[in-house]
Design a protein around this nucleic acid. Structure first.
Ligand SMILES: [Zn+2]
Ligand SMILES: [Zn+2]
Ligand SMILES: [Zn+2]
Ligand SMILES: [Zn+2]
Lengths: 166, 166
DNA sequence: CGGCGGATGTTATAATGTTGCAAACATTGA
DNA sequence: TCAATGTTTGCAACATTATAACATCCGCCG
């Protein structure tokens, strides 16, 4: 599993990606689902980027691989990956990011830096409890929650006067 | 101001719309902004619907008015209305809804019924405090929050065995 | 009047996402 | 092995959502 304890910090991202792919293979195996080359490659491309990737960026990357891909190819792979909880869609960006807690049941909150676009997935029990409670107070049966916070990450925050990282 | 104390309940929605328009006029006046006929009509159309409306649905409604409208017309009106906090965009639906707390600074959470599509805007201090706290814990400067909860409203919830309302 | 700026009209195009069908491929069981 | 079956991919067309660029109109001020 990737290390959510080191947000926004430089780290051995190749290892991070490799781990995510290994996790994905094991999750798919457990569900008897086929992590085909295309699906695995899409997941890898998503993980290699710290910023959420759009479907058409993925498409371009696949074309770059020499692969013959059309929009449905990428959307189908993304559907599959979302279905097994391996990626999340960021609605405010029309883009996709690897799930940092794949395999675990979780409600996520995303911190999206509007400067460097780095996006951190957080599973906050405080927030999800507050949301659940609020929904219940309105007798609403919550099924899915989208929580996307846009702002500035520590590396891009003006008060620190540091270089934005990428 | 519309009455958020009566979510999902039948009510005098014409009065509700009239009030929202009156509020909008006063807010625009205070900001020296021009609530032109198109802008006001778009806001009215949005308010008349309990479900969030898509830009092209608004476009069709304007065409129905006999007005000669193209996409930029509607998107410009929506930009204006968003700028003055009169409508919100629901990212997960690519649609727009009237703000239930126009004029007040607020962070909103939306409860979206996947059955009847009715959408309730809630300003929960518990949730926003939890979000702020979580962001701060990651040294993230939060600027904007999108919180959209999809599920079933009381009228559509199966346990109540009632008719879904619309 | 004449210039200025904001608002709208108009056309075209970009960006994102879907449908439907056929070919290729994997899996299973005779 | 080989046909039967279901899944995945290729492919073409299309649908939906959003923006760019430029012309025109309209109210306002001097
Ligand atoms: Zn996740
Ligand atoms: Zn940043
Ligand atoms: Zn609001
Ligand atoms: Zn409902």
């Amino acid at each position: 599993m990737s290390d959510p304890a080191l947000p926004y910090r430089p780290h051995d991202h190749d290892a991070c990606v490799a781990q995510a792919l290994a996790d994905a293979r094991s999750i798919c195996k457990a569900h008897n689902a086929r992590l085909t080359p295309i699906r695995e490659r899409v997941l890898e491309l998503i993980w290699q980027s710290h910023q959420p990737l759009g479907a058409y960026e993925l498409l371009a990357a696949l074309a770059n691989d020499g692969r013959n891909a059309a929009p449905p190819t990428v959307y189908r792979a993304l559907d599959f990956l979302q279905q097994y909880g391996l990626v999340h869609r960021i609605a405010s960006l029309n883009a996709f990011i690897g799930c940092a807690h794949a395999g675990a049941c979780h409600t996520s909150l995303f911190l999206i830096c509007r400067h460097c676009r780095n996006t951190l997935e957080i599973s906050s029990s405080t927030v999800s409890a507050a949301v659940t409670q609020t929904a219940q107070a309105h007798r609403f049966v919550a099924e899915e929650a989208i929580m996307e916070i846009t702002g500035q990450c520590p590396g891009c925050s003006p008060e620190h006067e540091t270089q934005p990282h990428d």
